[in-house]
Amino acid sequence: MSEPQEIVLLGKNELVGVVAQLYAEGYRLVQIGCNTLRAAYELNYSFDKDYLFKNLRITVTPGEEVPSISAIYQNSFLYENEIHDLFGIAVTNISVDYHGTLYRTSIKTPFSVDNVRLPEPPKQKAEAPAQKEDRPRQQEAETEGPEGQKE
C-alpha cells in the first residue's frame, strides 16, 4: 500500500518561499502538524497534488517565531492558531488570529516541551540483557529505566 511520502527538511527562512512555489505549482495544503521533541518543535507542512504527498519540515526552538503562510494558503489560519494554543509557538501575521482563544484547555499549552513526556527509546543491542529488564517497566506509565538518566 505504501505510497512514497517525501519529507523535505527546510530552514525557517526558506519556508515561505518554498510554500509560495508549491502554491504556484498547484499543490493544496493538507495539514500543518507539530511534534514535540526533547527541546524543540518540529513543524510539518503537508501538501498534496494528484495524490502525490509532499511534506516540508522545519525545526524551531521554544520561543522562536514562525512566519505564517496564511497570506498564501488562506486555510492555514486554523492550523496555525491551533499550534499556537496547544504548543505555545508564536506564529506571526496570521490572517485570522484568535490570540489564544481557539482552544481553551485546563492546562496552558498542553503539548509544549515542558508538558509532554516523551517515551525513552529501547536500549541498544550491546546492552541486550538490560533491555529485557526494561520491558516490564515499560508497561507502567513511567517509561524511564534505571539507565535512562545517562542521556
Partner: peptide, 9 residues
C-alpha cells in the same frame, strides 16, 4: 514511534 512501546506522537 521511536522503538519503545509508547508512541512519540
Amino acid at each position: 514511534g521511536n522503538g519503545s512501546r509508547f508512541l512519540q506522537r
